[in-house]
């Protein structure tokens, strides 16, 4: 479904991502775990087109998207929920969701919004409120709902648990699992490795821009070095 093949990404002279390759199969949840600054978000931004790779390729459904403009990648069925949510604070919940459906025909907005409201009933209650007045958890729900409005088949989630209470983290991860069960392919980036490994099927461990380990989520959960470095055990 999504294949990242030997990418190298630079910020000016800084070599941020080094020879990274991985794959996400249709219907999978794959997680990239790693410490702050390991390059997780950089990889997601490269996939969604906000950053460019110097080498290699990014392939979505068999088609290279490494030189496609970010706004056109969305239309190909890939949505990116960025780190820190980045909802439009000065726009209402409804308007944020409409923006998520920017590439979709106007007729699909109402039914898609109803579906998002079923996933996140709290957004329905607050539909006319400015996104800037929502709590962190609600903003995360809005960011995810907004991405779902695009009709995407592949979802990139960047730190959905960041800054949320344990209860909310649990709620968000239940939704991620449920979305996946209904056919959504998900690439999940998390610092909360415990949580990420518990929902993912496979995982890659990233350290200073390089993949240093990969395997099934269960394997990595029980791996001693992973437990020491990322699970605090």
């Amino acid at each position: 479904m999504l294949k990242v093949d030997n990418i190298n990404v630079y910020y000016g002279n800084i070599h941020a991502i080094k020879d990274v390759s991985f794959e996400v199969n249709e219907g999978e949840i794959v997680t990239l775990i790693g410490a702050n600054g390991a390059g997780k978000s950089t990889i997601l931004k490269t996939i969604s087109g906000l950053l460019r790779t110097k080498t290699g390729d990014v392939i979505l459904k068999g088609e290279s998207i490494k030189s496609v403009a970010p706004h056109k990648i969305v239309a190909k069925g890939l949505a990116h929920v960025p780190e820190g949510r980045r909802v439009f604070l000065a726009m209402s919940v409804e308007e944020n969701l409409e923006m998520g459906a920017y590439t979709q025909p106007a007729s699909s907005i109402a039914p898609n919004m109803q579906e998002v409201f079923q996933w996140f009933p709290r957004l329905k209650e607050r539909r006319r409120q400015m996104a800037g007045t929502l709590s962190g958890g609600e903003q995360q729900m809005l960011a995810m709902g907004r991405a779902m409005m695009s009709g995407a088949k592949v979802l990139l989630l960047d730190e959905p648990s960041m800054g949320l209470s344990p209860l909310l983290v649990k709620e968000i991860f239940e939704i991620i699992t449920e979305l996946n069960k209904r056919g959504m392919t998900i690439l999940l980036v998390e610092q909360n490795a415990q949580m990420a490994l518990s929902v993912a099927q496979r995982a890659y461990v990233l350290e200073t821009g390089r993949i240093i380990m990969q395997g099934s989520a269960a394997e990595l959960l029980n791996d001693d070095s992973v437990r020491k470095a990322y699970l605090g055990a």
Partner: peptide
């Protein structure tokens, strides 16, 4: 609305398409 979105967050607006 797209104008408002771009003026608030260019990157996020691009991610919307």
């Amino acid at each position: 609305k797209a104008m408002r979105a771009v003026s608030e967050d260019m990157g996020a607006a691009q991610l919307m398409g």
